[in-house]
Design a protein around this nucleic acid. Structure first.
Lengths: 259, 259
DNA sequence: TTCTTAATATGGATG
DNA sequence: CATCCATTTTAAGAA
């Protein structure tokens, strides 16, 4: 849990002992090649490299959420080699599963460290508010979609997929409901359309409703043109208990937020 | 470009000056909350935090490609506060654009450092083998799709979108071709179907072909059921010149690989 | 393993 | 801005 020498020849010797146990952080000037599902060449630039003990490799630029190049875990051994002639440090990794090669050439190391993370302190987590939770709420409160709607089945399987909710409306029509936690897209409307067509092919009349937190006009007009319904249910109506600060919450207010 | 003190009270004072210029790396025991498009709580655990100068925040577990929690750039100012009472360090960030709050509470800091990255050394990159390149190859070698096929137009615009390739087959039928560089999905088949229906609506008969590196059975059966064609073209047939090492390439062999 | 689908998807191009 | 679309998407769950 400390700095490593910046000298490449020493790094090449020391790093192997850390790769299996620690998270390694390396910063410096490098160029690199990733070749696999795509071939990507990076010009010489300053970047931060993170290597985790499971073999995940993340090469980050100074900005941006995603790594600029990376390789997932379960590759072979990562090899570092120092080249005396031009004083470069090479990282090589090959992942047979996906036939991906990753090469990084360092021309300068400006920072090197390792972090030993205690096995027993890997806390889990919990999420609230994904699509499953959305559907859960709709099952509990089908009237949010339409008055007197009765849910009959969830994840009803038909030939070409699963229908999120299968229901019956106040006039005893059967209804296929496709639920999207995000803004609806045309693709979602097509999908619903295909489901309804399937029932038509079976000689059954089934209504279709697309439920989403927001449905753009273009999508609504497609639905209307094909005799389908759209119902937008704002996030707040589904998860009214989730509080959010309207601006940056200062530390002393955290307790309120947690409630 | 060096270590920072691990003492929380000092960190709270020092960090602000680094957040706008440097990449900050922090490791220790924390729990955290992200609340925005979803609400996610993490139990106490040991994690590595990366904060970039554009405000991107990445909280990483000891393993895994993706951060376990994160926030994208363009949020407000990130605030660190030391709480004397229980000796914790709090990170708070709020991103108005998406109404996302991110809180991390540190109980222990095991590693703290900053990396100053030179602005002028941010190298760009280049990729070969994306979908555009795939289509390029198909335009050059339409016979890979079907003998005697003639490409007429690329990115042909119709009411509901763009058709990757528009062509004419050996019997002078017009053909709409949808290309996917990856495995085809049902959604891709729906999309193609929609294009064909558009032409039917115009009173035109147009064949539809879905081209992908791989087409699962279910997708093929949907295509067949709707009089559409599927053509899977393995990656190697499209990019035969891209060499890959069959196993880990040792440094001294790199020159061969680069050719 | 293969396939399917949600995701805080991300990121780029376009209108 | 919103929308559309490709992505080395990733990752989890089911068949």
């Amino acid at each position: 849990m400390d700095l490593l020498p910046k000298k490449m020849s020493e790094l090449a010797v020391i790093l192997p002992s850390h790769l299996e146990k620690d998270t390694v952080v390396l910063a410096g000037i490098c160029d690199s090649i990733f070749d696999g599902r795509i071939k990507s060449d990076l010009e010489k630039g300053e970047r931060v490299l993170l290597i985790k003990k499971d073999g995940s490799i993340l090469l980050h630029n100074a900005t941006g959420t995603r790594p600029v190049q990376w390789q997932r875990a379960k590759a072979g051994k990562i090899v570092f080699t120092h080249n005396d002639e031009d004083n470069t440090l090479l990282m090589e990794s090959y992942r047979p599963k996906t036939d991906e090669s990753f090469f990084i050439t360092y021309y300068e190391i400006n920072f090197a460290a390792f972090i030993r993370m205690k096995e027993e302190l890997s806390g889990g987590g919990e999420t609230i508010g994904d699509e499953k939770d959305f559907v859960d709420q709709l099952v509990l409160h089908p009237d949010l979609i339409e008055p007197e709607l009765k849910i009959i089945e969830r994840e009803k399987e038909i030939d070409f997929g699963f229908i999120d909710l299968y229901a019956q409306d106040s006039s005893h029509n059967f209804v296929a409901i496709e639920v999207k936690k995000q803004n609806a897209t045309l693709t979602d409307a097509y999908q619903l359309h295909r489901y309804i067509e399937f029932f038509q092919g079976q000689g059954e009349h089934v209504r279709g409703i697309l439920v989403a937190t927001h449905i753009p006009k273009k999508v609504l007009s497609y639905l209307k043109a094909h005799n389908l319904d759209g119902k937008s249910i704002p996030w707040q109506e589904i998860f009214p208990t989730v509080k959010r600060p309207s601006k940056l919450v200062r530390t002393r207010q955290l307790d309120n937020f947690w409630s």
